[in-house]
Amino acid sequence: MSLELINLSAQAPSQALFSGINATIGPADVLAVMGPSGSGKTTLLNLIAGFADPPVRWGGEVWLAGERLCHQPPHKRRLGLVFQSPLLFPHLSVGQNLGFGVPGNIPAADRRARVDDALDQAGLGGVFDRDPQTLSGGQRARASLLRTLLSEPRALLLDEPFSALDEATKDDVRAFTAAQIERYGLPTLLVTHDPRDAESLGADVLHLCGGATAKTGSLPAPANWAKGSNV
């Protein structure tokens, strides 16, 4: 199962965001999309997930496991989208949030079992009834990823998944995320501005330069990380 981007382009009303993006992301492979603010990173992610916003005109095709996604509504694409802030639903408990992710055709008893298993394996046993607000940042990030994984996605789309975390927690969650990608063999697209995110997931890098061209390449030398990652 792999995620293919064919000649993707996007045009905001006032400027071209990107064009000519071609990539194939194999099982358990990670492609990191990097670039300055406004270069269209999140737009690219939304476009793949099916949230194309009306003012943006786009072109190209997205294929997943041999299936063309362009005209499918977001909820039928089965792409796991994880946001910058963990975004657990505030009106549900942690366990209910995870249960929300489990596909609807699973019997009730199994649902509960799946959620419990997932929580246990993530070292989150015993938080089922907790209010999401009471979890630590790292716990929330893991719970959010688990919720997505329980929805049985065919690929992962991560939107700055670690940027809201403090430094100490980041490494934990990066490792946890890498392990899950490996375990489920999911093609993964990572949007980030932090080269360390990309490195920790062993990603190839796609640079969006705020213009009409896109480049793929390897990471810059570690000495340049602190200055940012524009190549």
């Binding site: 099916g50 909820h75 796991g80 989208l81 946001f83 992710g101 596909p103 929805s151």
Partner: peptide, 10 residues
């Protein structure tokens, strides 16, 4: 968006 991405209809 999160709910849609989790496979729930609108």
């Amino acid at each position: 968006k999160a709910a849609l991405a989790l496979g729930r209809p609108p």
